[in-house]
Design a protein around this nucleic acid. Structure first.
Length: 419
RNA sequence: CGGGGCGUAGCAUAGUGGUAGUGUGCUCGGUUUGGGACCGAGUGGUCCGAGUUCGAUUCUCGGCGCCCCGACCA
């Protein structure tokens, strides 16, 4: 990608109405655009990061047997009345609207009801369970107060998986499996070292749920971490500490954290409400046991921004970076620089290496400052000085380490990877 | 939803009851070229409505919007 053609520009200053680091940096870098409080659009660079996160999640969901689907955002009232969740007293953050004919509809904030209803249409035998459908889709929640940049929005992308099992045991078995999948996801996107499985209250349907909490001052939650086991307890459960086997007598350390994932056992509440049952081996009607498993993609992106940024800007882990390499050509009016940079860019793209090429005629300082802000993991500097020595310079964004590599060597290895 | 703060160019930031200033961005010209370089010339603005006033960007009221603290987060 030629940076001269990229329509987004970086800014030296963040808008004054953003206080949180994630929003400041993501806006300054041109990754997102704020539409209104709690609502952000993803621009080309931001979308690339989001897609990376999405793909990691998709791979791990598929690995545990997930089946991706895409449900509607518009929700029919009657499905929700069956579970009692249409009521604004029960769910206070509904976005509701009317059709032209006056019919009331809602914008989905979660999908237990409609999904149970869909499955009822397709599944009736024990032979067809368990199943684990999931989607990666926009959610709407009419939050009383949006806050912390992209951390808590009113419209946001979420991966929501739901398990439908024949028995409580089968459900718990999958629940345990999902914990491992989640752990893997957060490791892969780079948050592994700072993300802890956290016991939290389970809502109305089960006693406990599990959250995945990433340590950061930008988070909204407070957790108590048992460093010996790597397990944590949400503040809301602190009173029950001594009742929980995992935390009994342990010294816990308080941390601020951001909830990047949450998994629930739901019991049979929603499947029953929607009339979703199955027939067992004896032809007897049985209840379907459910769980739900959520990850907010924008929040993961914001959390990564918060956790890894330094004073010069964003620092993306390789797995989620918009591009792996950033070619920064200095002295682009110099023919040799231009030719070399063009050639390396062309060869990298041909080898399917993700690369952003800063081909603009700007001062070195400006280019470096922008490159730092964008946070692409490896910067390849091509300049008159380097070419005189016959080398290119590769700088790691994360630790600043600089390696000079012979130009011919790079060209050769690119030629090989192309074949 | 309770409390507090704020709204001046694309962005940031001053100031004033009497022709709205600076930085940055953008355009043009020139000098530069390893950390947002310099010189010159342009471009572009008072959130909306009502009131007070000869005159409102400024004062008053209302609306809309944004941020922060709290509550909330099924």
């Amino acid at each position: 990608m030629l940076q001269s053609k990229l329509f987004t520009k970086t800014k030296k200053e963040a808008p004054k109405d953003e206080v949180s680091k994630n929003a400041k940096l993501l806006i300054r870098g041109g990754f997102v655009h704020k539409e209104m409080a709690g609502v952000y659009s993803y621009l080309p660079l931001g979308l690339r990061v989001l897609k990376k996160i999405e793909n990691v999640i998709r791979e791990e969901m598929d690995a545990v047997g997930g089946q991706e689907l895409h449900m509607s955002v518009l929700q029919e009232k009657s499905l929700w009345e069956k579970s009692g969740r249409w009521n604004d007293e029960v769910v206070d953050n509904w976005f509701k609207t009317d059709l032209k004919n006056g019919t009331e509809v809602g914008l989905g904030s979660t999908h237990e009801e409609p999904l149970s209803n869909i499955l009822k249409d397709h599944i009736s035998s024990y032979k067809e369970l368990p199943v684990y459908p999931y989607q990666i889709q926009v959610k709407f929640r009419n939050e009383a107060r949006a806050k912390s940049g992209l951390m808590r929005g009113r419209e946001f992308l979420m991966k929501d998986m739901y398990s439908f099992c024949k028995s409580e045991e089968e459900q718990h078995e999958f629940y345990e499996k999902s914990k491992k999948a989640y752990t893997k996801i957060f490791e892969r996107v780079g948050l592994g070292d700072k993300t802890y499985m956290t016991f939290a209250s389970g809502g109305t349907y089960s006693k406990y749920s599990h959250e995945f909490q990433t340590l950061t001052e930008a988070g909204e939650d407070t957790i108590y971490l048992d460093e010996s086991s790597g397990l944590a307890l949400n503040k809301e459960l602190l009173d029950e500490k001594e009742n929980l086997e995992e935390f009994k007598g342990k010294d816990l350390v308080e941390h601020k954290s951001a909830e990047v994932g949450n998994i629930f056992n739901l019991g049979t509440k929603f499947s029953e409400a929607e009339g979703f049952f199955y027939l067992d081996e004896n032809g007897e009607k049985q209840k379907v046991w459910m769980g739900s498993y959520g990850i907010g993609l924008g929040r993961v992106m914001a959390t990564i921004a918060e956790v890894f940024a330094d004073e010069n800007g964003l620092v993306w882990p390789e797995a989620v970076a918009p591009y792996k390499f950033h070619i920064v050509a200095l002295d682009v009016k110099n023919e040799e620089v231009r030719k070399t940079a063009d050639e390396i860019h062309r060869m990298m793209e041909r080898s399917n290496i993700e690369v952003l090429y800063d081909d603009r005629d700007l001062s070195a300082g400006e280019k470096f400052a922008e490159s730092d802000l964008l946070g692409i993991p490896y910067r390849i500097v091509i300049s008159e000085n380097n070419l005189k020595e016959g080398v290119l310079e590769i700088k790691s964004r994360k630790d600043g380490e600089i390696k000079k590599i012979e130009k011919e060597k790079i060209l050769k290895s690119l030629l090989e990877s192309d074949s």
